[in-house]
């Protein structure tokens, strides 16, 4: 279980974005988080991805409290949580080919490719030709497919989708969400952050609505 209790987080002193928030992600379940822009959804996603240190409150990963964040957390802990960001174009190094983007976590954690790359790239519908291209040569939708494959390549136990579909068209949205649902069915705990109620109703097991 990945959980956060009584979180207080902010960027500017004295102005917390989240104040006393609790959330739990269970393996195999998808929690939807809906709310208008600027309500702190992405902030919560960043904390659960261990990328942002909360001012106070606790984060627990599979029963063990997380005390450090970003690169200070052990690689084993942070790679057990995959993240997909809102804007694929900002979330990839513009110099890398899509293939290098998808493989990056394997390279960084010195793990061998046991066929997962081929499996995932096929699932997100990226052809060999598309994988050889660089980000500026593909559309936002194609890039987000690569980002989802990257987030899943280390077989994380939890997946945080922060507005994953807000920049992509309906068809790509359906494809990405179908893949996330299949990994959730295989036991991954998913946080689906979106502002689209209709999408979350079709995607998540239960939906938390803010404000």
């Amino acid at each position: 279980m990945l959980s956060a209790t009584d979180l207080v987080v902010g960027y500017r002193r004295g102005r917390p974005v989240l104040d006393g928030v609790d959330i739990e992600l269970h393996p195999g379940a998808t929690v939807g988080l809906a709310g208008p822009s600027g309500c702190g959804k992405s902030t919560l996603a960043a904390v659960l991805a261990l990328l942002l240190e909360p001012w106070s409150g606790s984060v627990t990963l599979d029963g063990r409290p997380v005390r450090r964040f970003r690169h200070r957390v052990s690689a084993a802990e942070r790679t057990s949580i995959g993240v997909v960001f809102q804007q694929p174009r900002l979330a990839v190094d513009p110099r890398w080919t899509l293939d290098a983007v998808v493989r990056a976590p394997l390279v960084a954690s010195k793990r061998r490719d046991d066929g997962i790359v081929a499996e995932l790239t096929e699932a997100v519908g990226l052809t060999r030709e598309l994988l050889g291209r660089r980000p500026h040569e593909v559309s936002d939708g194609q890039l987000q497919r690569a980002c989802l494959a990257r987030a899943l390549v280390l077989r994380p136990r939890y997946l945080i989708c922060d507005e994953m579909t807000s920049m992509v068209d309906a068809s790509t949205t359906a494809l990405l969400v179908h893949l996330v649902r299949s990994v959730a069915a295989a036991g991954t705990g998913v946080l689906a952050v979106s502002h689209d109620d209709a999408l979350l109703d079709a995607w998540a097991d239960d939906v938390v609505r803010w404000r």
């Binding site: 519908g125 194609q142 309906a170 068809s171 359906a174 179908h178 209709a198 999408l199 995607w203």
Partner: peptide, 18 residues
């Protein structure tokens, strides 16, 4: 039909290919 069918309330089925 494919575009409408990809909407969450329209069937939620992606159009294959690119």
């Amino acid at each position: 039909r494919g575009l409408l069918g990809a909407l969450p309330d329209g069937g939620f089925e992606p159009i294959p290919g690119h």
